[in-house]
């Protein structure tokens, strides 16, 4: 399989005067898995559809390797696409679906049969060849859809919310399997999702999109530890976010004086798991709500005008109304 990367240059797309995608530029290295992450309507699906050739961009270019495919029709791009709704052909069996692209490419019946067998083995559905697709579970259907997309050896794989229609348990299993397959085949892959956990756990890099634009690109760790905008800070993981007031001695947050390591330009935040319950902490507040999560507990603490989210160990017994003091290590502050 030839490995090519994807390059997007300044993509624009409008629908009836409404901007869907505005100036998206991105480079996906050969063999890399990159996620487009964002809320619904952020332009991530439209971007994927322009790469697949289902939508024509109003401006900008799409490259597969060095080839400009911007005006190439979808059927000539050699992309594999997996849809949220599976989109299996209801009139064909499992084998008929997987072999569809090969039949279109005029492979011989014998070669098709061999390739379909390989693909069934790859996705763990050996013995399902002659089953009608209606008889399969959601997870099995999506495996067939993946096998169908991969069978003709596409240059890039495009996954449009592939796991969103599945049960939580099946979703987690298929997530791992998808990533394992992708690494094994080394196929350049773009994953569109609104689920930050999915994006973080599967991707080499994540592209956070909002209102048609790219907010930030980075590895999952970079996005979590060094978000550059308030949107990314709150969309990827959860974050206590404040607008600090300048005081003679330092900064005031939630009505309390704190020292910050660097002068903030905008807002400052702290992840719930970095906030410590500490009898000598500078922030004094009252417990409003305790949510037991099993491994830990999530505590909402009212501090002055703000409501803080704190992840605390289970051993600490807390009740609504308890007075607590909070401490934030200096290196836990995130400036956005």
């Amino acid at each position: 399989m030839q490995k090519v990367g994807i390059r997007l240059e300044n993509l624009h797309k409008h629908f009836q005067g409404k901007t869907a995608v505005e100036g998206v530029g991105l480079e996906v290295a050969p063999g890399e898995l990159v996620s487009l992450l964002g809320p619904s309507g952020c332009g991530k699906t439209t971007t994927l559809r322009m790469i697949a050739g289902f939508e024509q961009p109003d401006g900008g270019r799409v490259y597969f390797g060095e080839q400009d495919v911007t005006t190439l029709p979808a059927e000539e791009r050699r992309v594999g696409v997996v849809f949220q709704s599976y989109a299996l052909f209801p009139n064909l069996s499992v084998a008929g679906n997987i072999g569809f692209g090969l039949r279109v490419a005029r492979w011989s019946a014998e070669r098709i049969q061999r390739r379909v067998g390989e693909m069934l083995e790859l996705v763990g559905l050996l013995g399902f060849e002659n089953r009608p697709v209606q008889s399969l579970s959601g997870g099995q259907r999506q495996r067939v859809a993946l096998a169908r997309a991969l069978a003709p050896e596409p240059r890039v794989l495009l996954l449009d919310e592939p796991l969103s229609a599945l049960d939580a348990k099946i979703r987690a299993g298929l997530r791992t399997e998808l990533r394992r397959l992708q690494l094994e085949l080394g196929i350049t892959t773009l994953l569109v999702t609104h689920d930050q956990e999915e994006a973080m756990s599967m991707s080499d890099r994540v592209v956070v999109m909002n209102q048609g634009r790219i907010e930030q690109v980075g590895t999952p760790r970079e996005l979590y530890t060094r978000p550059t905008t308030p949107f990314v800070a709150t969309f990827v993981g959860s974050m206590n976010l404040f607008t600090p007031e300048k005081t003679p001695g330092g900064y005031r947050i939630s009505g309390h004086e704190v020292a910050l390591p660097v002068a903030p330009a905008g807002q400052v935040g702290v992840r719930p798991e970095r906030v410590e319950l500490n009898a000598h902490g500078p922030f004094s507040g009252t417990v409003e709500l305790v949510t037991y999560l099993g491994a830990e507990q999530q505590v909402l603490v009212r501090v002055g005008p703000d409501l803080w989210t704190v992840l605390a160990p289970n051993q600490v017994l807390l009740q609504r109304g308890d007075p607590v003091r909070l401490h934030v290590p200096e290196d836990a502050w995130i400036l956005v």
């Binding site: 697949a52 050739g53 289902f54 029709p73 979808a74 059927e75 000539e76 791009r77 050699r78 992309v79 594999g80 696409v81 849809f83 709704s85 989109a87 299996l88 052909f89 569809f100 692209g101 279109v104 490419a105 859809a145 169908r148 997309a149 003709p152 495009l158």
Partner: peptide
């Protein structure tokens, strides 16, 4: 629409 897009991505005109 989605079925047709799936077919097109697999090379069918």
């Amino acid at each position: 629409k989605t079925l047709a897009e799936a077919a097109r991505s697999l090379g069918a005109d």
